[in-house]
């Protein structure tokens, strides 16, 4: 997993409250392998493409936002379905961070597991940054995970909270399984005791 320390990139505002994972990637693409060469197109597909596959005027299709690697979104980003394909579609477009006031719980966790940084800022701050991004197309944002700080297009700093373990995971690009296996002895001891006390489960 690619570590996330400090990252600067063009950001795109996505002004859709409750943008569910069905919008991020429609269900009909869920059977595709994540290394499918068409995967990048699946992101926000039905907002970005007409039925005849031509592009809509959706902001992510507009230069210079096409270069964006950070999304700035509205409340409840990634609610709904647990599909990790939503994260795969973001990553296929080289998106490395999403900033939003609130995230769907499962989508948030899926982001973390893939090294994509979800940043929670207040609704007022997200709104403020989105307005700046509309006013200055192609403006960059810098995110410093170690300092837990976002520097907006106006160079103003915004601090954010993140779970300490999630932070370590992202800073070092750790995958969960190897981290879990550090606790192998504890797991085995737990299992022996648990199986003895809960015969009704096994």
């Amino acid at each position: 997993m690619q570590p996330f320390r400090r990252f600067s990139a063009v950001a795109v505002p996505i002004d859709i409250p409750n943008c569910d994972t069905d919008q991020i990637i429609p269900a009909r693409f869920l059977r595709r392998a994540k290394d499918d060469p068409a995967y990048a197109r699946f992101l926000l597909h039905d907002l970005r493409f007409h039925a005849d596959d031509t592009e809509t005027s959706f902001i992510f299709n507009q230069i210079p936002y096409t270069n964006a690697q950070i999304l700035v979104c509205d409340i409840n980003w990634g609610c709904g379905s647990s599909r990790e394909a939503a994260v795969n579609a973001l990553m296929a477009n080289h998106i490395r961070a999403v900033i939003a006031p609130t995230f769907g719980d499962i989508h948030y966790s899926n982001c973390i597991k893939n090294g994509l940084l979800p940043v929670r800022l207040s609704a007022a701050n997200c709104n403020h940054i989105r307005i700046q991004l509309h006013e200055s197309p192609g403006a960059s944002i810098t995110i410093d995970l170690d300092k837990q700080a976002v520097s907006g297009p106006d160079r103003k700093g915004y601090m954010f909270d993140i779970d300490p373990m999630d932070k370590i995971r992202l800073l070092h690009g750790l995958d969960d399984i190897s981290m879990t296996l550090e606790h192998q002895a504890e797991i085995e001891a737990f299992e022996r005791d648990y199986r003895k006390k809960n015969r009704w489960i096994f």
């Binding site: 994260v87 499962i106 989508h107 966790s109 899926n110 399984i177």
Partner: peptide, 14 residues
């Protein structure tokens, strides 16, 4: 509900 990375984590480690 969990994502597919977590599905694999449970398969491998319970």
């Amino acid at each position: 509900g969990i994502g597919s990375t977590e599905v694999k984590h449970v398969l491998a480690t319970q």
